[in-house]
Design a protein around this nucleic acid. Sequence first.
DNA 1: GTTAGGG
DNA 2: CCCTAAC
Length: 701
Amino acid sequence: MVGKKRQYYGFNGFHMPPVPRAPRSARGRGLNKKKNEDSQICAFELLASLAGKLLQESESSASSNASEANDQPIIGCGVKCEPDVDRPLRAECLDHGSCGESAFVTEFTSPNSDQKCLLNEFPHAESDSILERSSMITNSNSSEKVSTDLKSVICKSKSACENIPGKVEGSFDSRVSCDGFVNSGFNRQQGGDVLDTGGLAVDNPCSSKDPIEMRMKFPALINSENNVELPSCKGSVPNASRHRNDTKLGTRYDDENFSRCNKPLTKLKAFRSLQRIGDRRIRKLLTSKYWKVAPKLRDCELSRPGGMKTHYRKRKLCYSRERYQHDTFYKRRKFADRSVVVTSDGGFSSESVCNSPDKNMTGDKNGATVMFHGANGVSSSVMGHQASFHSKDSHVKFSIKSFRIPELLIEVPETATVGSLKRRVLEAVSAILGGGLRVGVLLHGKKVRDDSRTLLQTGITSNENLDTLGFSLEPSPVQVPPPLCTEDPPALLPCDTSQRILRTPTTPIVDSGISDALLDPSPLTNLDANIESNHESVSSHTDIETDNTQSDSRALVAVPPMNAEALAMVPLNQKSKRSELAQRRTRRPFSVSEVEALVHAVEELGTGRWRDVKLRSFEDADHRTYVDLKDKWKTLVHTAQIAPQQRRGEPVPQELLDRVLAAHAYWSQHQAKQHSKNQTAILKITDAHAVRNGAEGIHSI
DNA sequence: GTTAGGG
DNA sequence: CCCTAAC
């Protein structure tokens, strides 16, 4: 069918052309070597350095404790949080293979030297624990992202650069979440101890001892981007690449791990043929045990000074990483001349804001590349140095590399021209941007509403840790273009995503974009659900278009963001899909000939073999399912039993109705008889004879 | 995936 | 026709 031939162009957002970068391997190595050389090492460098340290430590300790290591030296660095003694919650480190991330996390987590001690202190964590840790972190991330009230505002970039930002993001998140843990107090980690983070026990395949290899893996890990998920723990490049593929497919927000809905996931198969088995496993685990984890985390968080309750509460209500991932912007800082530059990376780039005249900012590079670099170069050390920087120049420089826009789903016929495709894309973008946007400023996870306040008053100063600063795009409260698609309402409980999608009103949700951290349901959007819906919409489209020759106006569906989070996220045309799904099939009254065929088939096959009936008499009638036939028979029986005056629709010959009644009576008896064995064999035979006569008659025809 | 039945 | 429980 034509409709089926249509192709969908899914966009996770529009991105600027990828910025050329050095090969990962090269970068990774370079970074590694730079470690400790200066305070401005980038995040990766930091990671690398940490990894290196960890590796060294692990190796040394491994040698001393051969018994501990199971073939693979494992570096365990754990930050343990024990709000509840019985249920310790802690962040763990990883083995060599997957250390990148954890190492990084650890680093951030323990900016203080004493925290580093932990690393040394627990050099031999269980490899399994790594996963635990990862999961925990992930959860933390999700929670943070969901609420957007965490300091770190992260923006993911989809472009080539995405990988790194993603990594950093994870790192930041981890750090944030870990802080709480740290505050909770450290505890010695028990070697064999498995984190009780919700039972995410996944084997951790990684076990690379080679430091270099480990370093090399960082990029891969970064690829995991949002998916701080366990898969990354495996630290295998293949996984990473797979991730990338997913991203390209439009499953970038594949946080299936956090998906509450299993059903949708299965439907994703088509889209994610590459999906890791491990993911499923994890997903399952998460699904089943997610709630257990949440409470723990929350408890832990509560111990935090800042009080992240709302944050967690929100998370509690809605677990979906997708959303938050998108709603946060990746933030970067760069030091240049006492100036702090915040760079936001996003899918939709608008360099307009960035590139402050100050050359110091970029120093070595220019343009987007520079920005990107800067992003990567977020030197963890920056934090420490900020204080010193700040005093001189009171200017705060912000470099917003890009903002992310919602994903667009565009459908155009194969015969459409490229030009028309471009137009459609433009229309979709315009629909979103044209609706009116405003920028939101988040500081410490809180939206700054008072526009009249100065940066200084607000606390945005050059010496302030701009990590806590973020920007967001929000739909203009006044004029929000009628969204073609709507965000799903928040799910209180995991699951039923599909249901929600199908039934959720398409009413756009427009809020100030503030305070949504707690209330905003948008973060709930489920990737899986989205994908599924897309699928459905597709098929629906096809169907409908085929039957009704609808205009292709629907071909392109732009989904305006409902709120800041939505913007950050990737709203798909859930709505359209939803509506399509919701839409019933077109009614197709049975013709007399169809009724006759049906009656004939039933006469021969009986009323309990609708599939056979379908195959026998309606094989070619794609629009008639066996359920349809069954239903039709049901109505036929009813029709035959009522007075002719009461019948509606196209009149069915009485002859057919009589046969319907006869067959119905016969098969009813037949069934009853079967039920009671062959007691009524005689009766049956008699009836059967009558029926057969009719059937044969039809046959002869 | 089918059936059977209520909606 | 849809939706679902039950198989």
